[in-house]
Amino acid sequence: MSPPGSVGLLSALTETARRLFGAQACSLALLTPDESELVYTTAAGAGAQDITGMRMPSGRGVAGWVAMSGQPVAIDDLRRDPRFAQDVAEDTGYVPQALLAVPVVSPVRMLGVMTLLDRDAERPGADQDMTLLSLFADQAALALEAAAAFTDVGEMLLGALATAAGEGTALATAVQAAAQAASAGNQPSDLTELAALLAELGRRGAAERRLAVRLVSDVLTYAAAGRPGR
């Protein structure tokens, strides 16, 4: 679910948020590609081990609402919601009193939901926690998008190079091995740099994103045409 390369950063983010907000737990759930489920990929604090890997339908519940509406929500006195309390207690053994859930959203798509359980609401500035947690969610979205862009661009470039080199050649084999390494999160540093630049372009807007795609595709066309021996 989490693209390779983002796991450490996301763990650090959830743990930092948990401590900063004085919360019992902080978790990140990501939408599956078909949007039918939310999968808890990262968690820190109470029930973290039990909640990690948990899946729930995205079409129901508080986290589902946040993902589908794109709006944060804060709920106190959760034990009054019998369905919520029962579901969570069965899955994690920890029933929170209060939650604050915000969407994790990139400029182009909904990625998931970040949730704080039982934050310390008496801290100075706690009245701004909805906005503050959204900033953490923005960080998570950047980490996820950047990591996904690294993997996507690395795989795409290397895949195109392998095709250009010709089936069965030594170069194609080497490039395919590099593509596999890229999927595993061990991108060559120049590809990482390229991907970071493209990700930055993409974040600036849809037009810039289209430009980035066209740029890479033109470079590939040029590289394929200029291959020695053609």
Binding site: Q71, P72, V73, A74, I75, D76, D77, L78, R80, D81, P82, R83, M130
Partner: peptide, 19 residues
Amino acid sequence: IDQEIPWLDSGTIVATGNS
């Protein structure tokens, strides 16, 4: 802010939001 609102299963919860 901190509104007791109707929710699923004929229940209520206490929630905050411009919603």
